[in-house]
Design a protein around this nucleic acid. Structure first.
Lengths: 225, 225
DNA sequence: CCAACGCTTCGATTATGATCGAACTATGAA
DNA sequence: TTCATAGTTCGATCATAATCGAAGCGTTGG
């Protein structure tokens, strides 16, 4: 009867506090068990299970069985981008969950956005790559140039492998704290993994923050700032 | 207790079908009265009034009194961008309100996104301006180059006036039907207004579609395609 | 001033869905 | 086998909020 896509269904899915908490927790990029998600949402296991089946029916999350655990994760990076966009809008309007806590500055500095680097550092990285002509942007799509391919290879990233995957290599993702783009896509994921692998940074065991070591931060800034 | 922005509140606001319908109707760019919005949402006036006050409290819409009417409109283009992003996600996932009707192709070809041109034509326009170096994009932000400023002036647009406004001149907006960017911001608005003014196109009186005249379409395509 | 109109507010009803206890299934360990 | 853990399903309860009738308020037009 009405024209256009149905945004109400997604709104409903995201609109419940328990589900929103779960989705936010899953933005940490790790696959979590139902029990962990119940804890994150502050509800019992039964309730969480009910929410998870709704999220799964709406194809916002997927589950993967492993032994007697079921690990849940965001269905794909589209979901991550959408959530980050919503967070950006919310943050911008002052819809904050509570007053910004002590962890907040760390989050704004560097955090994981589903599977790639976000926050101040994420934006710096993106800006630098664009400025150096390593990637070219056209709206939300972005492509890795020949020059960028060289640079990534020099950093120890297997570009050919990334290209073989179904998901796009480069993607611009709107950063909610910086209100500018940072790098998503399989390259975004690979870069973050590389930083961790090199010992530049490690992921906060619970939460989305990324902690750079002293030397790692210096190396990162020297290279991308 | 939890970190980050609260996406649940926005989800709740968008998640009610009646409110979603109203917001979609307001994406048409026109300010609508409470009665019109009630009709669009398929609810009574009282119910609509209740929804509108919630939307207003959430700063998604603003009202403006005029005589004994109250005109409602989206609060600003941030809201429009957010809604378009949600629609893109929804459309992409097959969350359609019904099976695409006969109006759908017209919408995909050219429609209004709050106040600027979207759909195939909107994306063509954007791509062309980028390709010609009239605007430069960096993520969601975009700037009008000196070259672009000349071109816009030649088209009869008062660029100085646009720059004087508070809202950004150029902005990339993710198009839900094309899944690429089109041009938002005050320039996007001004361009659409200019097309209408020149008689190239006119806005569907009810609905979001934009109908190009035969000659208008030819002129548009010659210039931007 | 009165009547019509546009809209909001109030109040009552109703429907939806979030929640959790309890029972059930499945996997793994002893 | 038995027990423990992880999770789902069922059912009942409960709270929220969507809905609309009726009344109230402000504006316009006669």
């Amino acid at each position: 009867m009405k024209e256009g896509p149905d945004i109400a269904q997604i709104g409903t899915l995201v609109g419940d506090p328990a589900r929103a908490n779960m989705l936010t927790a899953l933005m940490g990029g790790r696959a979590l068990t139902a029990t962990e998600l119940a804890g994150a949402a502050g509800v019992t296991l039964q309730t969480a299970s009910s929410h998870l089946s709704k999220l799964e029916a709406g194809r916002l999350v997927t589950q993967r069985k492993q032994g007697r655990h079921r690990y849940f994760a965001l269905a794909d990076d589209e979901v991550g981008l959408m959530l980050e966009a919503l967070m950006g809008f919310a943050a911008n309007r002052g819809f904050l969950r509570a007053r910004p806590g002590p962890r907040d500055p760390a989050l704004r500095k560097a955090r994981v956005c589903y599977d790639h680097l976000a926050g101040d550092f994420g934006v710096r990285l993106f800006d630098r790559l664009v400025a150096d002509g390593d990637i070219e942007t056209a709206g939300e799509d972005a492509v890795l140039t020949a020059r960028g391919e060289e640079r990534m290879t020099a950093l120890g990233i297997d570009v050919a492998r990334l290209k073989g995957q179904r998901r796009p290599v480069c993607r611009a993702c709107l950063d909610w704290s910086e209100r500018r783009s940072h790098l998503a896509g399989s390259l975004g994921e690979a870069l973050l993994a590389r930083f961790v692998e090199q010992g530049w940074a490690r992921r906060d065991p619970d939460g989305r923050a990324i902690r750079f070591s002293r030397s790692g931060e210096a190396a990162f800034l020297a290279m991308f700032s």
